[in-house]
Write a protein that binds this DNA or RNA. Structure first.
Lengths: 184, 184
DNA sequence: GCTAAACTAGACAGACGTGTCTATTTTGCA
DNA sequence: TGCAAAATAGACACGTCTGTCTAGTTTAGC
């Protein structure tokens, strides 16, 4: 079992459970049960539940941008890519049953863990920067400067996802997209 | 002890802990310890931890709008009131150490509890309606129709608070206010 | 085929979770 | 002042939590 399939199965299962039912509501016992692995295997690959959480955040972050890049790659113009940011997350939320942003969820559950905080902030900052770069390459209506427009799009989208989790709906994320279209 | 001070102390303590460290991370034992009340007293006033959670949401909702109404009452124009929505929540988040919206936090922790969901949605919907009403009374630049403007302000503010929790900062809520000023 | 690493099952420790119960004391009011 | 309601302390049941450990089995690579 080189590049252990076991480790992947642990992380897959933990990720699913952490997101679906929450970090604190998920116990090690449930993870080993559903991943169908031995208790010692888990503690062989991860020294603690906290390490597992950090691995979950790291992998989610990587996958998240890989998926996004793949989605954007097909599109020719920066403006289309900007719209695609909305579309991609709307589709994603639909698939995830509107449980909201992974990083927002973890922030809501964990307090005072600097390692968690660092990862969450880095993830969001990179996303914001992605928007900022695309805005810089876009011919927009110049209703506001590039920086402000990027912030606006970022806030609309984050707001849409956050509200979407509370409404269990993509309604507001779609409204955010419509509003973005008026500004671009 | 009429209108039991004990019950208040329970709810005060539970509310503080639910918000500060999370619902699942807070145990009954810690609540009775910090509230300095007997175990049986808690279960006399609340049948279960879930009931305590619902009471927490109900009271938070009521207090939230009472506080907001008091804040808005002093202001003469609807436009000033709209800005005050931002100011009020920014100040509040500063006081709460940027842990974000109570209802957003609970949504992130609890899945599939319809009673929780109902309360969260009702709270947000009422807030959105508050914005909508104020927009209807405001002479704004007509860059968009009233409904869309209200949605925009709602999304900007919710986004600002949500991002603020992940950045532990009021930076983006303040940016949201600045953007709102450009649209109003 | 041998060896070491990886995986397995499962017992265990010790803390903590929620909720119930008893028995006693305090409190508020008529 | 007397009595019912409300509060107290704390034991208890029973489950779950994280993390450790032992001992046996499977697997991969030389």
């Amino acid at each position: 079992m080189r590049d252990s399939a076991v480790k992947d199965r642990i992380l897959d299962t933990a990720s699913r459970l952490f997101y679906d039912q929450g970090y604190h509501a998920t116990g090690i016992n449930q993870i080993i049960e559903e991943a169908d692995i031995a208790r010692a295997s888990l503690y062989n690959h991860f020294t603690s539940k906290t390490e597992l959480l950090l691995a979950y955040l790291d992998r989610t972050h990587e996958d998240w941008f890989l998926e996004l890049d793949r989605y954007l790659a097909a599109l020719p113009t920066p403006k289309e890519k900007l719209f695609a940011l909305f579309d991609h997350r709307i589709q994603r939320q639909r698939k995830l049953k509107y449980k909201g942003c992974h990083f927002n969820k973890i922030t809501a559950e964990t307090c005072e863990d600097e390692e968690v905080f660092r990862r969450v902030k880095m993830h969001k900052e990179r996303f914001r920067q992605t928007i900022r770069d695309l805005v810089g390459q876009t011919d927009h209506r110049r209703m506001m400067d590039d920086e402000t427009l990027a912030d606006t799009l970022f806030l609309l989208l984050e707001g849409g996802i956050s509200v979407g989790a509370m409404y269990r709906s993509s309604e507001y994320a779609e409204k955010a997209r419509t509003i973005a279209a008026m500004l671009l």
